[in-house]
Design a protein around this nucleic acid. Structure first.
Lengths: 221, 221
DNA sequence: CGGTCCCTTGATTCTGTTCAACTGTCGTGG
DNA sequence: CCACGACAGTTGAACAGAATCAAGGGACCG
């Protein structure tokens, strides 16, 4: 693993260092743990576990799952540059089980260290609030009920915008999750997702080869 | 309007003063504006407006609405003791239109003043983070796809828990929103909601008279 | 007392689910 | 390197749950 640090991280302008000067970043760097890779399907944390740590996705992707009786419900996906674990702050315990969709890397900061930082640097305090608010915005915008096709388009568009934000192409990318997982997340049957993808391809709106997807037309939100 | 202040407010242990001592509460009190009543269907703020203020519901109820092309989607409801406007922090603008469901009262604190407070009192800083995390927890738990009946039961149960938290009965309360609004929020037709209520009553799980509802059996979540 | 909005109920239609069989893909080990 | 097995995805046919359409009843407000 290369000698990575916050100060030369490609994601630094999306992450905590965004609001810090060089010296402050050095200080932050000492508190951040760069974790060994998280393997596909390995859990970052589990439901009901005591909250100790916030994570930032360096690379890869994660899903958060909540359990309703027998049923599993995916409530969110997380990609590079996004913060995982914010749910734990409220009651000092995680409320989802969050696992890697593909082999991934994360950075860790302990809840305590983060608290120290927010007290020491007002700009971090402000940024922490903004990141949490961003998560609320995301949840709000994901809350959408419509026809199955609209739901899927809305989802794809949202994915596309997120990837774009992190410097990837917004028109062509690889789906990090299985179609079944998209189905679960959207509240549809996986057969329905399959059929809609086929139809969208037929209508020449997208092209899809396995998990590689190309968005051919400008869609609206 | 009675001479209300944070220090004698019934909600203070759910709100910002929770973590403050008497003197600090006095200081807070001077910054909080107690607003004139918000009338039924009046907007607290509108989509795209610049973010300036956070609100706490003193009494009454609100809904947040987002617009997808022609379709209106209710994304959340807010009740006494809950904080409204957190969505605005991320990008300095509100992303929903939030209106009163019934005649209501709110307290206001300007974004600037809140920032001041969080810097001055670390405990407020911590509490702000917890309140935002609580909102994320709420959004996560509201994210549920299942059969129409399960959705409605899940919703009622969640409502019941919220009311209980604020000292109301968890078994008997008045629905603050129209059935149509429940339908929109859950992604169902209002006729479906109507039919399910009828069926639940027939099955002796609830009793419903207009907007008065009594939950007769312990449900599970 | 009249109007509007909200709600209920029934009949019909349709979108999406379920069930089933089959194909494709990927990783592992012989 | 190919064969195998497990899992992921596709497609079709039948079914079911919820939407839509339509009409009427009830609550609340001025």
């Amino acid at each position: 693993m290369p000698n990575i640090s916050c100060k030369n991280c490609a994601l630094s302008n999306l992450c905590l260092p965004f609001s810090l000067n060089k010296q402050q970043v050095e200080e932050l760097d000492q508190k951040i743990k760069r974790r060994k890779p998280i393997k596909r399907s390995e859990a970052l944390y589990r439901n009901h576990e005591k909250f100790t740590t916030l994570f930032v996705v360096r690379s890869g992707a994660f899903k958060s799952v909540i359990n309703y009786e027998t049923r599993e419900q995916i409530t969110n996906f997380f990609f590079a540059g996004e913060i995982v674990g914010l749910e734990g702050i409220a009651n000092q315990q995680y409320i989802t089980t969050t696992t890697a969709l593909v082999d991934s890397f994360v950075c860790e900061i302990s809840a305590e260290d983060l608290t120290q930082f927010t007290r020491k640097f007002p700009s971090v305090q402000q940024q922490a609030l903004q990141m949490m608010s961003q998560e609320i915005v995301h949840n709000t915008q994901a809350y959408f009920h419509g026809e199955a096709t609209d739901k899927l388009l809305h989802f794809l568009l949202h994915l596309s915008k997120r990837f774009q934000r992190y410097g990837y192409s917004s028109k062509q990318f690889q789906l990090p999750m299985a179609k079944q997982e998209i189905a679960n997340y959207l509240g549809l049957a996986s057969e329905t997702i399959s059929r809609i993808f086929t139809k969208l391809q037929y209508d020449n709106l997208i092209e899809i080869d396995n998990r590689y997807i190309t968005i051919k037309e400008a869609q609206h939100g």
